[in-house]
Amino acid sequence: RRRVRAILPYTKVPDTDEISFLKGDMFIVHNELEDGWMWVTNLRTDEQGLIVEDLVEEVG
């Protein structure tokens, strides 16, 4: 499975499927959606939700 790491922190918009995260958080990518969004699991918090790919980098 594809893994990505947050390069910046992010605070979710209330009442959306987004998740908040810290710089350095690792995610497993489940689905890549339109307009650069990804459905992921945050490995630190075990939370699932949407993040935008501009805020993460690939992990080898």
Rank of each mutant, 00 (worst) to 15 (best):
R2H: 07
R2M: 07
V4K: 04
V4I: 06
V4Y: 05
V4D: 00
A6F: 01
A6S: 07
I7R: 11
I7F: 06
L8V: 14
P9E: 12
Y10W: 06
Y10H: 12
T11D: 12
T11C: 15
T11Q: 11
K12A: 12
K12F: 03
V13D: 10
P14T: 09
P14W: 07
P14E: 13
D15A: 09
T16M: 03
T16D: 02
T16I: 02
E18H: 05
E18N: 04
I19S: 02
I19H: 01
I19P: 00
S20H: 03
S20R: 02
S20Q: 03
S20C: 04
F21K: 00
F21R: 00
K23D: 07
K23N: 07
G24R: 03
G24H: 07
G24Q: 03
D25Y: 02
D25I: 02
D25P: 01
D25E: 03
D25F: 02
D25C: 02
F27N: 00
F27V: 01
I28T: 09
I28Q: 07
V29D: 00
H30D: 07
H30N: 07
E32N: 14
E32L: 12
E32C: 15
L33Q: 11
L33V: 12
L33Y: 13
E34V: 13
E34R: 14
D35W: 10
G36P: 05
G36C: 06
G36E: 03
W37V: 07
W37Y: 12
M38D: 01
W39A: 04
W39R: 06
V40G: 04
V40H: 00
L43D: 05
R44F: 05
R44C: 11
T45D: 04
T45C: 02
T45W: 02
D46S: 15
Q48D: 09
L50V: 10
L50Q: 09
I51Y: 01
V52W: 14
V52L: 15
V52E: 12
E53S: 15
E53M: 14
D54L: 11
D54E: 12
E57C: 11
E57W: 05
E58A: 10
E58F: 06
E58H: 08
V59M: 10
V59W: 11
G60H: 13
G60T: 13
G60L: 13
